[in-house]
C-alpha cells in the first residue's frame, strides 16, 4: 500500500517536475515553487488547526499562483491569459471555500481581466509605470469598456434572478426563444399552484365544521368575508409579498342541486409574454357526506376540487351559470 502511494507520488512528480524546474529564481517556475510551498504550508496548518497561518499561507499561495499563471501566459504568448488571471484575482478577492461562485466574483471577473490585459501598456520591462502611447489609448478605452459592458450583462443575470424571486410567476411563462434557462426546474404555472393552495386552505377550513356550520359559512352575508379569508391565507402561503397584489382571484357560486359548487379563477396581472392576463380555473364541490362508523352514519363535510386548468375562454362564459 505504502509502495503504491510512493509510486503515485513519484509518477506525479515526474509529470509536474518541468513546471517546477526553475532555470533561474527570476522565472515563472520559481514562482510556481513558491505557490506549491505556500499551499503545502496551508495544508499542514489546516491539519494542525492553526487557522491564521493557514489563511495567510493560502492567500499568499493564491497571489503567487496569479503571478505564476500570468507570467506563464506571457512567456508562451497565450493571448487569453488575462481572462484566466482575472478569474483567479476575482476568486482571491471575492471567492470562498463553499464551491459556489459569488456574485461579486463573477461580475468583477471581466473588469479585472481588462485591467490585467492593458497593464503592459502602462509598464515597461522594469515594471515602471508610464502613460500608454497616445495611439494605444483608444483601443485601451475600447477594451476596458467592452469588459465593463460584459460585467453589466453578468450583473443583469443577478437582477433577473432577483425578479424571478420576487415574481415566481415569470418562470412559468413562455420564456422560449428569449432567454436560455440553466438548471431551471420545470414547475407548474403559478396560477395552478395558487389555486391548489386555495383548495387546500378551503378543505382545511371546512372539513372540521359540521354541515350546518358550513351552510352558515356559505350564507351570502358571511360568504364574501370567509372566502376572502381563505384566499388571503392561501396567498400568504403560496405567493411572495410583491406578487400578491398582482393576482386577481374571483369566485362564483355555480348552480348545483345539493351542496355548493365554487369556481375560483385566478388571473396574473404582472409581466407576461402575451397579451391578456392568463386565467386559471378550479372548481370545488362542497357536499354533505355520510361516513359509516360503528353501525352509525356520521355526517361529514366533503370538499372535492378538480384539477386547475388554464382557461382559453373568458371565465364568465361557463356553461354552468352563477347563482348570483
Amino acid at each position: 500500500m505504502l509502495k503504491q502511494i510512493q509510486d503515485i507520488i513519484q509518477s506525479f512528480w515526474q509529470f509536474a517536475k518541468p513546471a517546477f524546474d526553475a532555470p533561474t529564481a527570476y522565472s515563472w517556475q520559481g514562482l510556481a515553487r513558491l505557490t506549491l510551498f505556500s499551499f503545502i504550508v496551508a495544508v499542514i496548518c489546516w491539519v494542525l488547526g492553526i487557522d491564521w497561518v493557514r489563511d495567510f499561507s493560502s492567500t499568499l499561495g493564491q497571489v503567487f499562483l496569479i503571478f505564476t499563471v500570468q507570467w506563464w501566459g506571457v512567456h508562451y504568448n497565450f493571448k487569453l491569459i488575462p481572462w484566466v488571471t482575472g478569474a483567479l484575482v476575482s476568486v482571491l478577492f471575492f471567492g470562498n471555500l463553499t464551491g459556489t461562485i459569488p456574485q461579486a466574483a463573477l461580475i468583477t471577473w471581466p473588469l479585472f481581466s481588462g485591467v490585467i490585459a492593458v497593464l503592459p501598456d502602462f509598464t515597461d520591462r522594469n515594471l515602471e509605470l508610464h502613460s500608454p502611447k497616445p495611439e494605444k489609448r483608444p483601443s485601451i478605452v475600447t477594451l476596458l469598456s467592452t469588459q465593463a459592458l460584459i460585467s453589466c450583462w453578468l450583473q443583469l443575470l443577478f437582477v433577473i434572478q432577483a425578479w424571478t424571486e420576487d415574481y415566481p410567476a415569470l418562470l412559468s411563462d413562455d420564456l422560449d426563444g428569449n432567454v436560455v434557462a440553466i438548471e431551471l426546474e420545470t414547475r407548474s404555472p403559478q396560477g395552478v399552484e395558487f389555486l391548489n393552495a386555495i383548495a387546500v386552505e378551503l378543505e382545511t377550513t371546512l372539513v372540521p365544521l359540521s354541515w350546518s356550520e358550513v351552510q352558515k359559512w356559505m350564507q351570502p352575508a358571511n360568504r364574501e368575508e370567509n372566502l376572502t379569508g381563505v384566499v388571503v391565507s392561501a396567498a400568504d402561503e403560496q405567493l411572495t409579498p410583491l406578487e400578491r397584489a398582482l393576482w386577481d382571484v374571483e369566485y362564483q357560486l355555480l348552480n348545483q342541486a345539493s351542496g355548493y359548487r365554487l369556481q375560483f379563477t385566478a388571473s396574473w396581472n404582472g409581466p407576461q409574454s402575451s397579451v391578456g392576463a392568463p386565467v386559471h380555473r378550479k372548481i370545488c364541490q362542497i357536499r354533505e357526506a355520510f361516513q359509516a362508523e360503528d353501525d352509525f352514519q356520521t355526517a361529514v363535510v366533503d370538499v372535492e376540487c378538480d384539477r386547475a386548468q388554464k382557461l382559453d375562454i373568458p371565465p364568465n362564459s361557463e356553461p354552468n351559470q352563477p347563482v348570483e
Partner: peptide
C-alpha cells in the same frame, strides 16, 4: 439561472 440572450443579442 436565466441568460437573457435575446436582449444581449
Amino acid at each position: 439561472m436565466i441568460l437573457p440572450i435575446s436582449i444581449i443579442a
